[in-house]
Design a protein around this nucleic acid. Structure first.
Length: 332
DNA sequence: TAGCAGGATGTGT
DNA sequence: ACACATCCTGCTA
């Protein structure tokens, strides 16, 4: 698809390889039944791209939105490549448009239909466990989905892996749907996040509500450009203002030069942070500077997958020369 | 009132 | 065993 393409009767967009996020946003504002063939193709391409699916099989598929919506689920899954995923996503879009929940509509909320499509990631190689979809993966998926990021959850500092939950109730609800726990609340979800702090997967950013830091990120992290309209720009700026550069630099100083990538064996990533310096750490941490800690963390990370988890805790005021407390956590 | 920390215990795989 | 889910007490902004 190239040049100017009419995606619907109303929306004209310029596209080369797929649509920009703003173009997608326009497309999603139109009922799927009114999408042109190119509109349907753009949507499919977007969804496939989100889930790393091969889009080559879509090129010879000539179907418009009206025809698409007339298909039963069985017909849809038979005719359309990755039909189960695309079906789920289509139902999600339709539900968004017709939901009587104003908040869900406003934020393009995810109906449970979208969850199976996210589940697709369970089949990826880095997940060796059978029932493998962890909360942190779920959050990462939301952070990479323009339907949920930045409305429900957003990066405050993507290089450092710092993110904020914008709509705790909705995100918790989604997690509950995924886990078939309709009573899921942020209180419960938050408890799980605190377990992640113990395991070294996340770090709570102290002094910032609903703000956490991934200690590892996937190499192929998809960055979602903002889909917000002008009316929401102030809200976005507000969120940015809550994350001053000075805090970024402090986190950087005490934590890592960069957020380490999640690599093969993601479910065991906590092990990556374990260190062989158990004895040394217990004796020598009282007068360490942040620079010492950073060096140690990097060193330890490179050294060994065995040992204890080190957790650096920040105080509200930056005092670089002051000793920093290290919480040592061990499964022993 | 909501967010947060973390202990105890239950549940499903 | 693991990864939560639930419930709880207590603290803080």
């Amino acid at each position: 698809m190239s040049g100017t393409t009419i995606l619907t009767e109303e929306v004209e967009v310029i596209s080369t390889d797929g649509l920009s996020s703003s173009e997608l946003a326009k497309l999603f504002l139109i009922p799927p039944s009114r999408w042109s063939e190119d509109g349907v193709f753009a949507w499919m391409q977007h969804v496939c791209d989100q889930f790393d699916l091969d889009t080559s099989t879509l090129k010879n598929l000539h179907i418009n939105g009206k025809e698409l919506q007339m298909l039963s689920q069985t017909e849809f899954e038979k005719r359309i490549p990755f039909g189960n995923i695309l079906w789920a996503h289509l139902q999600f879009l339709i539900t968004c448009r017709t939901s009587d929940n104003p908040e869900l509509t406003k934020y393009g909320m995810v109906n449970k239909a979208v969850i199976p499509s996210i589940k697709r990631r369970c089949n990826e190689p880095h997940n060796s466990a059978g029932n493998c979809y962890y909360l942190y993966e779920f959050l990462l998926a939301l952070l990479q989905d323009p339907l949920t990021c930045p409305h429900l959850i957003r990066w405050l500092d993507i290089k450092l892996g710092v993110f904020k939950l914008m709509k705790t109730k909705v995100v918790s609800w989604m997690w509950g749907q995924h886990k078939k726990k309709p009573e899921m609340s942020y209180e419960t979800l938050g408890r799980s996040l605190r377990y992640y702090s113990q395991k070294g997967i996340l770090r709570k950013v102290i002094g910032y509500h609903l703000t956490y830091q991934f200690r590892f990120l996937p190499k192929n992290l998809k960055v979602v450009p903002s889909l917000e309209k002008c009316s929401e720009e102030q809200e976005i700026q507000g969120a940015r203002d809550e994350w001053p550069p000075c805090l970024s630099s402090r986190l950087k100083a005490v934590a890592l030069n960069e957020v380490f990538p999640l690599s093969v064996g993601t479910p065991n990533l906590a092990l990556l942070y374990k260190t062989v310096t158990t004895a040394n750490a217990s004796q020598n941490t009282r007068h360490e500077t942040t620079q010492d800690i950073r060096q140690k963390v990097i060193h330890v990370f490179k050294l060994s997958p065995q040992g204890v988890v080190s957790e650096v805790q920040l105080s509200p005021e930056p005092q670089i020369s002051r000793p920093v407390k290290i919480l040592r956590l061990s499964n022993d």
